[in-house]
Simulated scan of single mutants.
Amino acid sequence: MSDLKEKIIQTSLELFDQQGFHGVTVNQIVQASNTSKGGFYHHFQSKDELLFVIHDTFITYVLKEAHAANVIHTSPIPKVQAIIQAFVQVFDLYKPHISVFYQESLYLKPAYEEKIKGKRDEFKRMIFHVIKEGQEEGYFRKELPVEITGMAILGMVNWIYKWYKREGSYTINQIAEVFTDLVLHFLLPGRVDEDYLNHMLKVPFFYESE
């Protein structure tokens, strides 16, 4: 990525965060990044494409890391460790991008939204696949439904956005270690008390209507 393109992105991240997507014009981005309209349109067709690139950057990163984990590791255990580590790290590496994503994602044009959704769905499928792979090979608990387990992991990690602060008590590496530990503890087999398991099987899923 060129220095100018990165400068435009970083400048727009600050402006979008402060004023919202619709509160910022291309002229403001051009002026704040000390470039020209020609420089802006050389890298982005429109402000809408710029918003897409901001969204796409961190999703592409975590997807790339997940693919790399799948290639590098043969066992599902280090695979899921690497995927969780990269997934957590993204909330620090691309914190401004993610902040703008949650604030402004509704303004993505349908064509761009479809591309983002495609990558998010691909990442979700990769999470599901490694869980299923671990179950089939005897590494992970087979009684856990793949879809619920995968969505629990995605939801747990995504919530980092709400509370993570770079100046907080824990570094992103420490948080990644804790999250990896939590995920492995509920994935890896352990002795289950039969009375407790029988009790839980009788508990209704969510709430039954009276």
Rank of each mutant, 00 (worst) to 15 (best):
1 M>I: 06
1 M>F: 02
2 S>P: 11
4 L>F: 06
6 E>C: 03
10 Q>C: 15
11 T>H: 04
18 Q>Y: 03
18 Q>D: 14
19 Q>Y: 13
19 Q>W: 13
24 V>W: 01
24 V>G: 04
25 T>Y: 01
25 T>G: 02
26 V>T: 15
27 N>E: 12
34 N>T: 11
34 N>V: 10
35 T>H: 06
38 G>C: 08
38 G>A: 15
40 F>L: 04
40 F>R: 05
41 Y>K: 10
42 H>I: 03
44 F>Y: 06
44 F>N: 08
45 Q>A: 13
46 S>W: 04
48 D>C: 10
50 L>R: 01
51 L>E: 08
53 V>H: 07
55 H>P: 10
55 H>Q: 14
60 T>N: 15
61 Y>F: 14
61 Y>G: 01
65 E>P: 07
65 E>K: 12
65 E>G: 04
65 E>T: 05
65 E>R: 10
66 A>K: 00
66 A>V: 02
67 H>Y: 13
77 I>E: 14
77 I>P: 02
77 I>S: 09
79 K>T: 01
79 K>A: 00
84 I>P: 00
84 I>M: 07
84 I>N: 04
86 A>N: 02
90 V>E: 09
93 L>V: 11
93 L>C: 06
94 Y>E: 00
95 K>A: 10
95 K>Q: 08
96 P>E: 01
99 S>A: 14
101 F>D: 03
102 Y>V: 00
104 E>K: 02
109 K>F: 05
110 P>C: 00
111 A>T: 13
112 Y>S: 03
112 Y>C: 03
113 E>L: 13
114 E>N: 10
120 R>D: 15
122 E>R: 07
123 F>M: 02
127 I>M: 11
129 H>I: 08
131 I>R: 08
133 E>H: 06
135 Q>N: 05
135 Q>D: 05
137 E>A: 10
138 G>P: 06
140 F>S: 06
141 R>T: 03
142 K>E: 12
143 E>I: 10
144 L>W: 00
144 L>M: 08
145 P>T: 01
145 P>W: 00
148 I>C: 09
151 M>P: 07
153 I>F: 02
153 I>Y: 00
155 G>R: 06
156 M>S: 13
157 V>M: 02
159 W>T: 12
163 W>F: 13
165 K>A: 11
168 G>C: 08
168 G>A: 10
169 S>E: 13
169 S>A: 14
170 Y>E: 15
171 T>H: 08
172 I>Y: 03
175 I>H: 05
175 I>D: 02
182 L>N: 12
184 L>T: 02
185 H>G: 07
186 F>A: 04
186 F>C: 03
187 L>M: 07
188 L>H: 02
190 G>K: 12
193 D>E: 09
195 D>K: 10
196 Y>E: 11
196 Y>P: 00
198 N>M: 05
202 K>M: 15
202 K>I: 08
203 V>H: 02
204 P>Q: 05
204 P>D: 03
206 F>K: 09
208 E>I: 09
208 E>Q: 11
209 S>E: 12
